[in-house]
């Protein structure tokens, strides 16, 4: 039971990260109907940038907590800014000119862009994983029980608390943006019908750009959290995390933001539970299996709407 609780906490932490990335997939898919294959790599860029900034600022776990908070705020802003610039540029350079081109074109362009980002970071920063000392340390014991079988402890680290709480906060802000602002309205209108939206005076290009920027900012935040959680990053983390986050987006129902978060949590839990109870080696296989099963048997996802084939 304690073991399960511990895994539950770990799973929710990982799930938060997947959920944040998944929002970017789900929004882009909702608005322009393509898988932004490079989105996982934007997450990676966010992670690498926060690594560089943290290293540059020289903060470690030993710095005072005020310094750490100040520094991390700076890191968040820089990582979000840079990742947004990346995603904005990608959309401008690789996707926008292809709008209205044949249907495979944006997908292939996105695959190319994903390769470009990975290789760019690998060449510029070398391929080796980049480890640092933990910046945010400390943990709290939730349960401590001594039995005949041994000592059972359930802990939650400060980092885990930070990830889960900040994810929930971001989600709340984000849902507000989508539901309450004119930007959110424009976005939902573009999802329904781009041509009609533009006839009604919505700047479709701008709305799509902003979608990419918002998605990138969340991915960068996830990247930073991922880095602080595992204390290591490299150029290749975007591939797997990207696919898992995409699975989360589909599982939750593509186009649905709460769905993306829910899907992320489910995928995170499945991955952690699978590693805990079955085998660590096959955890990615488990994630892929979930992807396949979800796409085949419930492509509309948990919170999505079913589609009727039109003849």
């Amino acid at each position: 039971m304690e073991y399960f609780l511990q895994q539950l906490i770990n799973g929710l932490t990982l799930g938060s990260i997947y959920g944040l990335i998944a929002i970017g997939y789900t929004m882009v898919y909702g608005i322009i109907g393509m898988i932004n294959f490079a989105h996982g790599d934007v997450f990676m860029v966010g992670s690498v940038v926060s690594f560089i900034v943290i290293l540059g600022l020289g903060i470690t776990g030993g710095s005072g907590s005020f310094m750490i908070i100040l520094a991390l705020a700076l890191v968040v802003i820089i990582a979000m800014l840079i990742a947004s610039v990346y995603n904005w540029t990608i959309e401008r350079v690789a996707y926008r000119p292809l709008r209205g081109s044949f249907r495979l074109a944006p997908l292939i362009s996105a695959i190319g862009m994903s390769i470009v980002l990975q290789e760019f970071v690998r060449i510029a920063q070398e391929g080796r994983p980049k480890p640092i000392q933990a910046v945010i340390t400390g943990k709290h014991e939730l349960l401590h029980r001594l039995t005949e079988g041994g000592e059972f402890i359930v802990t939650i680290s400060n980092m885990q608390i930070l990830i889960i709480i900040s994810t929930l906060a971001l989600m709340a802000i984000f849902t507000m943006i989508i539901q309450r602002t004119s930007l959110g309205r424009a976005q939902r209108a573009c999802e329904q019908d781009q041509k009609m939206a533009s006839l009604l005076g919505i700047d479709v290009d701008r709305t799509i750009s902003i979608t990419f920027i918002l998605g990138a900012a969340l991915a960068a935040f996830a990247g930073m959290m991922f880095f602080l959680y595992y204390n290591v990053t490299d150029f290749f983390i975007g591939f797997l995390a990207g696919i898992k986050a995409f699975t989360a987006a589909v599982l939750g129902g593509i186009g649905s933001i709460p769905g993306a978060m829910l899907g992320g949590m489910v995928i995170g839990l499945i991955e952690v539970m699978w590693s805990a109870y079955f085998s660590v080696e096959y955890k990615d296989v488990a994630a892929f299996t979930v992807l396949v099963i979800v796409l085949i048997f419930m492509p509309q996802g948990l919170l999505g709407k079913p589609e009727v084939e039109k003849v």
Binding site: V93, P97, A105, I108, S109, I111, G112, I115, E119, I123
Partner: peptide, 15 residues
């Protein structure tokens, strides 16, 4: 640089 070039080629090709 070769994989980078392949990626760029894919993007440019589609364009």
């Amino acid at each position: 640089f070769r994989m980078l070039a392949v990626g760029l080629a894919m993007v440019l090709m589609m364009r």
